[in-house]
């Protein structure tokens, strides 16, 4: 089986500042990978480089998603190809209703794939069904995009977008930050609902707690822009006990910086 995402020896960062230093990672369809690591290890940068945020540059290596090299693709082309980033800090956009935004997004992606746009009535049904499953009330669809939403509501809204767009690979950038335990469970249920043999996920988090609810297949430790250790779910538990101290000393001393997935 070919990988969904195959990152090889990736070097990337912002101008004059390398942040990702030879990172390799491979995710197969159906797998959930978690990346944990201390602040400043490059986790969020990795999510931005993968999704194509302006201002980040790739200086070497490969990132092949579903057979396509991502580096030269626009953010929208990546979304159309099936990549999704759940933002750590979702933006507020006054003047656009959540519903209009969701519909514009879904139809942009469908058009990009050469599919027909979804009609208004079918879309309304879909949006209601998915938002109710996430415990969001219908009013949140009518409200302006993230305006006046609590931290938890914003994160839920990110998961709603994911549920509607059904990406092949979802990157969750600290989706657990700012969530109380109930919200965390709901969000995790939303994420788990998308798990299937075809979909992959990359869950970026500081804390093991999220991984109680979203069980990863593989856990990676990231430090200084590299994957320094990979293992099963037990690695997350270990980190919860011992912290990151042993990894922040220097990536070069860690065991081989081996490709993530065996």
């Amino acid at each position: 089986m070919s990988s969904l995402l195959d990152i090889k020896d990736l070097h990337a960062g912002i101008p004059d500042k390398p942040i990702i230093n030879g990172l390799s990672l491979s995710i197969n369809p159906g797998e959930v990978h978690a990346i944990m690591g201390p602040n400043g290890s490059g986790k969020s940068t990795l999510s931005y480089v993968l999704s194509g945020k302006e201002g980040y540059e790739v200086n070497g290596g490969e990132m092949v998603f579903d057979g396509q090299e991502l580096a030269q693709m626009s953010p929208e082309a990546r979304a159309i190809a099936g990549l999704f980033l759940a933002f750590q800090y979702p933006l507020e956009i006054p003047g656009v209703t959540n519903m209009t935004f969701l519909k514009t997004s879904l139809n942009a992606i469908r058009r990009g794939r050469g599919e027909d746009e979804m009609d208004a009535a079918s879309f309304l049904r879909l949006a209601r069904e998915k938002s109710r499953a996430l415990g969001m009330d219908d009013d949140m669809l009518r409200r302006q995009l993230n305006v006046g939403f609590s931290g938890g509501e914003k994160k839920r809204n990110e998961i709603l977008q994911m549920a509607i767009l059904e990406p092949k690979l979802a990157i969750l950038d600290e989706t657990d930050s700012g969530l109380d335990i109930d919200a965390l469970k709901t969000v995790a249920e939303g994420v788990n609902a998308l798990r299937s043999p075809e979909h992959g996920m990359l869950v970026i988090t500081h804390y093991q707690r999220l991984l109680d609810f979203i069980k990863p297949d593989v856990v990676h430790v990231m430090a200084k822009g590299q994957i320094v250790k990979s293992g099963g779910p037990e690695l997350a538990l270990e980190l919860e006990k011992s912290g990151y101290a042993e990894y922040v000393g220097g990536a070069e001393t860690a065991s081989e910086g081996s490709p993530a997935h065996a």
């Binding site: 945020k53 990546r78 980033l85 942009a108 990009g112």
Partner: peptide, 12 residues
């Protein structure tokens, strides 16, 4: 905001 919308499939 522009990046956010593009990451959701809208062209620039």
């Amino acid at each position: 905001a522009l990046f956010f919308l593009r990451s959701r499939g809208l062209d620039e």
